[in-house]
Design a protein around this nucleic acid. Sequence first.
DNA 1: CCTAACCTTTACGTTAAGGTTAAAGGCCCT
DNA 2: AGGGCCTTTAACCTTAACGTAAAGGTTAGG
Lengths: 140, 140
Amino acid sequence: MKKQEKQKDQESQETFYTIADLAREFDVSKRSIRFYEEKNLISPRRTKGNYRLYSKRDRRRLRLILRGKRFGYTLDEIAEIIGFNDVDFDEKDQIRKAIEFGAKKIGDIRDRINELQLLENEMLELGQRLRDRLLELEKK
Amino acid sequence: MKKQEKQKDQESQETFYTIADLAREFDVSKRSIRFYEEKNLISPRRTKGNYRLYSKRDRRRLRLILRGKRFGYTLDEIAEIIGFNDVDFDEKDQIRKAIEFGAKKIGDIRDRINELQLLENEMLELGQRLRDRLLELEKK
DNA sequence: CCTAACCTTTACGTTAAGGTTAAAGGCCCT
DNA sequence: AGGGCCTTTAACCTTAACGTAAAGGTTAGG
């Protein structure tokens, strides 16, 4: 068999990944992925030999973690967001709290987007000033 | 005299802030502000008694630092961005580099905005599913 | 002038998020 | 069955970004 990047489980037809697969795909260290597991952000199943085996769902979750990181969320905050994702679909109260939490987070995200746009404008203006100045210097 | 939040310098008519003013306004610790100074991200002048005195420019800079932080930039990266701001206006080569750097950063910012919008959509969808589910549970 | 409430520096402590290394064992190829 | 490369856990190390405490100087109000 070829050096597999994905692995099909015969019975279930599910696709699985090794830790190295994901590390490569998302350009993150294996240590980091294991660390996220220590923090209960992700919980892959194991093979007979105790190797970690990641499902598509696990993979999506890892992507979410890394995305969160890029916005400066701490792992604890990311854990909260994941909790929002994992709410029990039969618990009305949990669902209500999750909705509330989600609304708050969305507000948060919008604030960040706004701020980023402000920053973008600032940098665009500065860039313009620099270009003007450069032209002037070169004219002489 | 009242407990001043701002202070006008008689001669220059400039507005100054104490470290506590800024800490309060931006909801950050005084220690953090001093730490940014250690890292040369900000350089307030001093009073006779060696107290830090922040100008409007210093204040804007602090705001920029904190904004950067919220996007997950490290202080080192923020220092780079600030360098872009502080370029010598008479050095053509520096200006060119600053323009290039700025363009790169702007691309960076746009990527982040896109990703944030993706995340927002994901959360909106999930929120919708949760609301639907809640209605269903309550109908019964 | 006193005092409370600021501020200063110095130094050491802490926390988050991993990196690194070691020892032991699993997996695949021939 | 052996060799080479993978994986596992455990333990300790590192760095960034502060927190906290000590020891003392400064300033505004009474």
